[in-house]
Each structure stands twice: as C-alpha cells, then as structure tokens.
Design a binder for these strands. Structure first.
Lengths: 216, 216
DNA sequence: AAATAATGTAAAAGTCGTTCACATGAGCTG
DNA sequence: CAGCTCATGTGAACGACTTTTACATTATTT
C-alpha cells in the first residue's frame, strides 16, 4: 500500500481529482440524513471542500445531480431484484416472493437512493437513460411474472404485465406508506410481512400461490 | 346583489381581509400548475397582492401552510371516501370498489391536495391535527373492510385491518406510479381499471369477491 | 375617543442556484 | 522541457427565497 493513495475525500491541491464522485456521495449522505429536501448543491460542495460553483463543472444543475443518483439507484435496484429472482430458483413462486422482499429491503437499506428514485420529482422524460434504467428494473418484475404465469396451463394464464403492475404498485405503496419506521402509523405486522401476505393472497386468486384457497 | 361584496382576491385597503384563505388558494394553484416544488411563500404572497412578510402573520412558516392544505385535503378525502362507501350500499363489495375508485378520483381530480398530502414530506408528528385527519380517512377504509369481512361466516374472517392496509397500499401505489397521465409508462389499462382489477383479485382470494374465479 | 390587538409593510440578514470572467494545473505535442 | 490547450476550480455577482425585526395602519374593544 502506498501512502500516496488518495483515500477518499481529502483535497490535494487546486484540483479535487474526484469531485464528481465526492459530490454524489455527499448528496447521498445529505438525503440520508435530512431527507430529499435536505440536499443542496451548496452544501454538497461544502462537504466536498470546493466552492459552490465547482459542481457546475460536472452537472448542468441540481436536478442533473439527482438524476445521476437516481440512475445509479435504479441500476442497483435492478441488480437486487435480479439477484432475488435468481432465475426463478428454486421455484417460481418462492423466487417471486423474494423479489418482493428485495423491493422492500432496498427501500429500507438504501433510503437515499430510494428517495432520489421515487420521492424526488424528476422529469424522467428529460433523462432518457434514467427512464431506461427504470424500465429495466420493471422488466425484472415483468419477466418474473411471465415465468410464474407459465406454470399454469395454457388458456388459464392471466396477463403477466398486469400481475407485474399490481405487485409493483403494492410494493411501492407499502414502501411509501409504511416503509419508514416511524411512519406514524402503527402496524400489526412489519412491512415485509404485510407485502408478502398481500402478494400471496393476490396470487392465490390467480391460482398461482400455495394451493389452499380457502376450500369452504 | 351589492356591488360592495368583495368578490374574492382584490385587495381593498391596507388590510387584505382574507389573506389566510387567499394564500391557501394561491398555494393550491401553484402546486396544481407547477407541482409541489413550485410553491413558494413569496409567490403565494405575490399572487395575493401582499408583501413577502405578510404570510408569516398567518402561518409560522412555509411548512405550516402546506400542513394546513394537507389537513383540508384529508378532510375532503375522508368525505369523498365516506360518500363512496355510502354505508355499504347497495352491497358491501360494490361499495368497497367504489371507495377504491374514489381514492383514484381524488388523486386525479385534486392533484394539488393529493400532492400536499402525500408528495410533500411534512413531519406528520409536528401537526397532530393532520395526523388525526389522516387517521380519519383511513378509518373509512378500515370500517368498510370490517363490514365486508362481516359478510363471511364467523371463523373464516380474515383480519379487516390487514385488508384495509393492503387496499390502501395498492391504491396509493397505483396513484403514485401511474396516477398522473404522462407517468412515462404506458399501461395496457387505465389506473382505475388496474386498481379495480387488483382489488377484485385480492378480495377473491379471501372469498370476498364475486364467486367466479376464472371459469374460462 | 382612546387604547389595544390584529394585520400589513419595508428593510435586512442569511441561504441558495446559477453564471461569468478568470486562475490553475494536467496532459499532450514538438 | 517549453509551450499549448483543455478540464476543472475560484470569486464575485445577481436574483430569488425564507424568515425576522422594527414600524405603520387599521379593526376592535372599552
């Protein structure tokens, strides 16, 4: 190891050398600490040890910085969901539930990314790569739904896209309303359990989940 | 009719006479026109025809104004849901679906209120009346779920609270992700249809919705 | 009519976002 | 290595916003 290695944030000279990354990290920390509205270009610059104007060499404006964070968030998100799905192993239903859990886990473990992705009103249209990254995340869910539906006999298969949309909406709703610990509302169960139960019940009606569908 | 009646916004003299209301209306218009971040105290004051300092005679700070709007929003929201539920008539299931539709209708027809209620990160804890109003809205859903569950034989009744939470989360997720027209994502169906289908499928698995469980 | 409370204004301090002219240094070219 | 050029950072400035404070005006009460 060389003592010359620039560890992380320290400023060396006139040029920072890593400002773009430092700004992104600072912004993430700010969002994590103070919520989405706690981020300001000025404060991020301050934490990176540069003047308030410096960030504009790397991002057109504040929204562009947030968009970059959201983009990276979606990439990680996609990776998490894909890993949870794991090609549908060991069985499509179990893997599908794992995807749901991964959704909530991401919202819980990466609140800064999640906030940048969903709680910040970015004009997705203005950042095509962002739109693409979001589409990619959703594609995981859609593919999983396809595979799940394929376990049913032809002719009895509900539309996979609809299933993916329902599950996504449910997961997002649970995360948005109850994801944060102190959401003010006291739940009889954890968000994870709530989502899992919801997904299971939903899939049951489609004949996709554990056989027992109440045989009253 | 007397020509002296102060129509709405015009300033009469040094005192506005209706500033509090005028500010709330201006803020709502701003949110509706430019999104939640488009609201500023200064601009609201400008539209009301007063100096930037005047609003502080009526609201502690910007967040307090938003909180007041959110509060009124929840009151209207509660009224909408209650009317849709209509005491469970003509039948609990149909009325329950009406509540779901009313949820989306509110998000669509009153985007400014909805944004102030859900898309603005207000510390609910700091405004107890706001928390109470939100609880009241949720109570409509919970009561409806109770009544719906009561149509099942004792012993086969799922927990109503869980049902209410699931439906709320699904409705909120649909509204948040697909509620706005140009959400960037092209859907095979309208948000209303998507939510209705989701609720029906979900309730089916509980034995609460139309018997037919896909007889194709 | 006078006193008081409510509600407005003007001015100011502090923060931010953003731009512009200018400074510095990194990396290539000869 | 000298010199050129480009990327990246600085400082100063503008305009907008939030919020406070001292003061002005009007409503309301006594």
């Amino acid at each position: 190891m060389s003592w010359t290695g620039r560890g992380g944030n320290e400023r060396r000279g006139y040029h920072h050398g890593n400002l773009r990354e430092a700004l992104i990290e600072a912004a993430l920390a700010l969002i994590a600490e103070l919520g989405p509205s706690g981020f300001t270009v000025a404060e991020a610059a301050r934490r990176a040890g540069v003047s308030p104007a410096a960030p504009y060499r790397h991002f057109r404006d504040a929204e562009a910085l947030l968009a970059e964070i959201a983009l990276r968030g979606f990439e990680r998100f996609t990776a998490s969901l894909a890993q949870a799905w794991n090609g549908g192993k060991p069985d499509p239903l179990g893997a599908f539930e794992n995807v749901g859990r991964a959704y909530l886990a991401f919202a819980r473990d990466e609140p800064a990314f999640y906030a940048a992705m969903f709680e910040t009103r970015i004009a997705f249209d203005s950042y095509p790569p962002l739109q693409a990254a979001a589409d990619q995340a959703f594609a995981i869910l859609r593919d999983a739904a396809e595979r799940l539906v394929a376990t049913l006999p032809t002719g009895k298969r509900p539309p996979a896209l609809m299933i993916a949309l329902h599950v996504w909406a449910l997961a997002h709703g649970v995360a948005a309303l109850f994801g944060r610990g102190d959401a003010g509302r006291k739940l009889p169960m954890s968000p994870e359990e709530l989502l899992e139960a919801g997904i299971l019940l939903y899939l049951q009606s489609l004949g996709l989940a554990g056989g027992a569908r109440k045989e009253n």
